[in-house]
């Protein structure tokens, strides 16, 4: 099965024109599978953290959304403990005009703007609503614990 030109071009452009704070590298044996790192956005509890994600482009891509999952443990109302992400553009609002680049930017934006009203991790969302300050403190703590830039910081 040959790789669609779009995936090849996207990969090339990710390398030639990288997005600051986002890094996506395909596996050599499977060019549809990407190792991703996303820097926690500044002014957010995740600032200073480097979060590892995995991204997979399904057969139907770009007609269906890529599958994205956090590998690094993160305290966030829209990301559950398995790393799954509740993000509209990854589901119903996916559009084939979006790309790996834009979707990762959306993920990064989600870190900067948690939405506890549409939660995936209910306990986190609950805490976020009840005591936002404490929740943010926990998120910072987790960032320090699990998302240190060192490679061994990953879970």
């Amino acid at each position: 099965m040959s790789l669609p030109k779009r995936i090849i071009k996207e990969t090339e452009r990710l390398v030639s024109d990288p997005v600051p704070g986002i890094n996506a590298v395909p596996h050599e044996e499977n060019l549809r599978y990407f190792d991703v790192t996303v820097d926690g956005p500044s002014q957010s509890p995740y600032e200073g953290g480097v979060f590892k994600l995995e991204l997979f482009l399904p057969e139907e891509y770009p007609m269906v959304a890529p599958k994205v999952r956090f590998l690094t443990k993160i305290y966030h109302p829209n990301i559950d403990k398995l790393g799954r992400i509740c993000l509209d553009v990854l589901k119903t609002n996916w559009s084939p005009a979006l790309q790996i680049r834009t979707i990762l930017l959306s993920v990064q934006a989600l870190l900067g703007a948690p939405n506890p009203d549409d939660p995936l991790a209910n306990d986190v969302a609950q805490r976020w609503k009840e005591d936002e300050r404490a929740a943010i403190a926990t998120a910072k703590e987790w960032t320090q614990t699990y998302a240190k830039p060192e490679p061994e910081a990953e879970t």
Partner: peptide
Amino acid sequence: VECPICFL
């Protein structure tokens, strides 16, 4: 022109 979806 490049089709923005298939990049061809």
